[in-house]
Design a protein around this nucleic acid. Structure first.
Length: 487
RNA sequence: GGCUCCGUCGUCUAGUGGCCUAGGACUCUGGCUUCUCAAGCCAGCUACGAGGGUUCGAAUCCCUUCGGAGCUACCA
């Protein structure tokens, strides 16, 4: 591996939907490796499957990466000297190479129809043979070719797989070897001339001078095909990129994570109020670890510590609970200003506030008391709503808990003690209420304060009571207590 | 079916022949703290897939076996 001094890693998704957890874990490792080595991250869109990749998904992918803080040095929006970085804009390049392979005899035209291929494949399966292209069109005579043409058949371009085997050293798995009899001649370009993944990926990795290919394990068995294309391109073995196939991220059902088994779209995590740094931190721990017992790490620490050698080869199951735990840690570690910045969109979106300065001030003073009680930002609106609702009413379900005599008594006593208060701060409120309800009435705190909590916040689960009263203000607090005292 | 990869607590992991009566984190259970909910603190549960070797000694090396996953497209 001679000239790998300038590391060039690529993240090359095929956005057939929103980027998901698996994609992002790969992107994160690509990014971390590039940054760790001081190399470049190339972001390339593999949109040769035009049926499934749409502009909308491409935009979403770019947006998601940015949101996560995974920046790239070459690719969409930033350009670079090896562009364009959308494969759909590089079609002539692939066509040129396909023709060259044809001219060299490395590839050939194949006229077999989809039906014929399918038929022969199932026959192979039945007779216990390895399924795959049987080489029927490998050496067609001129006459056979013209016969096919007269039938109106359009050929695909197929790569000739020579006898032998392909072995390469995977940076995560060690030496991997494939015998060519199990790697059938594969299609490089469709009958309409458009390229397939196997062609485009290999050509681009060479042309874009990629030195390290870190990608999902699902592509492991397509590696010999790519190497075959390198050979046809005349690339020396010493110039091949280093491959590292990352283990899968799996869902609860033990299958590779996909849309079918769980919430995998990063957009969903974003809406739920997961912090990018929490997602990255958690994902980094799936298949990799810093080595010591440290788990809560910053993006910078990830960059400093990340090496491919420490990447695991076994698949990891995605665990929402752990993500949530990490998210909670990250939220608690936020400065007040940052926490405010993250919170506001959620509050505005939920229509709890409109976003004016006055409201923001209230939010800012309320955030410290809920910071350690949430695991996702999406919980904030429900927690702070009681501070902003105009026509506050306790829901019937909770109201029922206030009807008994004991509760009514607590409310009346509390009201009497609190009404004359000159200054309205949580310490002072707490002092009078404790002395009246706990010391004098002899109530247990959890009993005594429960009724007040419901009266004032509308729920038996709320931020700390006295701070909540202070934030609400004397006037509204008293009004709410009065409202639930039955005459 | 064939090929390839993978196999340590429920989950993520540490571990590269002796430091392992297997460590950490999340979850779970119990307790402490406590105005609710959290957070915090303490304790507990639970794992080297199985079977054979090699070795004075194996989670670590070898073999077999079982299990899981991926690929097997004119998808990527």
């Amino acid at each position: 591996m001679s000239n790998k001094s300038q590391v060039r890693v690529r993240f090359a998704p095929s956005p057939t939907g929103d980027l998901h957890v698996g994609n992002i874990r790969t992107a994160l490792f690509d990014w971390a490796y590039a940054r760790h080595t001081g190399g470049k991250l190339i972001f390339r869109i593999e949109d040769t499957d035009t049926e499934r990749v749409t502009d909308q998904y491409i935009k979403a992918a770019i947006d998601t990466l940015k949101w996560l803080g995974l920046n790239w040095d070459e690719g969409p929006e930033v350009g670079g000297e090896y562009g364009p970085y959308l494969q759909s804009q590089r079609l002539e390049i692939y066509a040129t190479w396909a023709q060259k392979f044809l001219d060299q005899g490395d590839a050939y035209h194949c006229y077999c129809s989809a039906e014929e291929l399918e038929e022969r494949r199932s026959a192979q399966m039945k007779s216990n043979q390895a399924p795959g292209y049987d080489g029927k069109c490998r050496d067609l005579s001129a006459q056979q070719v013209s016969e096919y043409k007269s039938l109106g058949r359009k050929p695909v371009v197929r790569m000739r797989m020579p006898d032998g085997e392909t072995a390469f050293v995977d940076a995560i798995r060690g030496e991997v070897k494939f015998e060519h009899k199990y790697v059938p001649d594969f299609v490089l370009a469709r009958a309409d001339g458009s390229p397939l993944y196997t062609l485009a990926v290999a050509v681009d990795d060479v042309l874009m001078k990629i030195t390290h290919v870190l990608r999902g394990e699902d592509l492991l068995s397509s590696t010999p095909r790519q190497i075959r294309v390198y050979q046809a391109m005349g690339v020396a073995e010493s110039e091949y990129p280093i491959f590292a196939h990352l283990p899968f991220v799996m869902g609860q059902d033990n299958a590779k994570l996909s849309k079918r088994n769980g919430e995998v779209s990063i957009a969903w995590y974003r809406e739920q109020g997961f912090l990018p740094e929490a997602i990255c931190n958690y994902l980094a721990l799936l298949g990799w670890s810093p080595g010591d017992d440290k788990e809560n790490i910053t993006m910078q620490e990830l960059v400093d510590l990340f090496t491919v050698e420490r990447v695991n080869s076994s698949p990891a199951r995605f665990d929402m609970k752990k993500l949530e735990a990490i998210n909670g840690d990250k939220i608690r570690a936020l400065t007040l200003d940052k926490f405010l910045e993250w919170s506001l969109p959620f509050l505005i979106n939920a229509k709890v506030i409109t976003g004016n300065e006055q409201e923001i001030e209230v939010v800012k003073s309320a955030l410290p008391i809920i910071q350690e009680r949430i695991i996702k930002l999406s919980e904030i609106p429900a927690m702070l709503n009681f501070l902003f609702v105009e026509d506050f009413k306790v829901a019937d379900e909770e109201l029922g808990k206030l009807q008994d005599e004991a509760s009514q008594n607590v409310l009346k006593v509390a009201l009497a003690k609190v009404e004359p208060l000159q200054s309205w701060d949580h310490a002072g409120i707490e002092a009078v209420l404790r002395s009246a309800l706990i010391d004098e009435l002899g109530l247990k705190p959890r009993i005594a304060f429960s009724a007040l909590r419901i009266a004032v916040t509308g729920s038996h689960i709320s931020p700390p009571l006295f701070e909540s009263l202070q934030l609400l203000g004397k006037e509204r607090s008293i009004a709410r207590i009065k409202a639930v005292i039955s005459k």
